[in-house]
Design a protein around this nucleic acid. Structure first.
Lengths: 117, 117
DNA sequence: CAAATATTATTGGATACCCAATAATATGAT
DNA sequence: ATCATATTATTGGGTATCCAATAATATTTG
């Protein structure tokens, strides 16, 4: 019933890869998360869960670059933004939103028109 | 003076590659363009002009996949969306906007707060 | 305790996009 | 006609992300 709220699946006309690390940083701005928690949050956004062979190397790279730190709680490894990571995430958000704003605004306008019939 | 309207440059905290073909399709929904015209439009959006070693193979791939057709006008090679390309571009827009809407909405809200001081 | 589940993690192959450098050629300017 | 510019295009190296398959181990459940 609320199927239209799901992202469902990526289109086939062109590659839709990218911005995984950026999206991880954005998620971590909201709250600390462990790996699988992040995977589920990304699945909710994108419709597909990132492959472990993609997610864990990305997290390792973010840690290597000083964007996140980790602590362990039992089996779980919890990721936290560093200050550098928080600043970087904010800059990345600004960049991303300025670049793609035209696409979004157009999309929102077309949705309004459909709603206002 | 209107420097804040420029995208300026990509952040360094994480990779910001991706969605080149998608952005090309989105641009072509507006109007037909030749290669360098597309390059300039992309530069205006992203702050950097795509490298020819990236742009031309991407265009070739879109043509190979039946998303665009080309015609030549003098030296210029003009790209036009096919019907398949137009449908695909619309689907890709829908997907992209649904996935990244949370990031945009948050960004817009934070901008409103700054404006309304 | 034993079995099932959850979580972290690696390997390896494919592909899209990043870049610098280089080239050919058509058009426009002097 | 000559030179400068614009446009298309390729090569080749690097990296992030995509995927399937596999594994080790801690926690939870029966």
């Amino acid at each position: 019933m609320d199927q239209q709220n799901d992202v469902c699946c990526a289109p086939t006309c062109c590659d839709m890869r990218g911005f995984l690390s950026f999206t991880i940083l954005w998620q971590l701005m909201k709250k600390d998360m462990y790996g699988q928690e992040l995977a589920k949050a990304l699945e909710k956004m994108r419709g597909t869960k990132p492959n472990p062979g993609t997610l864990y190397p990305a997290l390792k790279e973010l840690e290597k670059n000083g964007m996140v730190t980790t602590r362990e709680e039992g089996r779980k490894k919890i990721y936290t933004l560093t200050e550098k990571g928080r600043v970087g995430a904010q800059e990345a958000c600004d960049y991303f939103c300025r670049v793609y704003a035209p696409i979004f605004e157009e999309y929102n306008q077309s949705k309004e028109q459909v709603t206002q019939v």
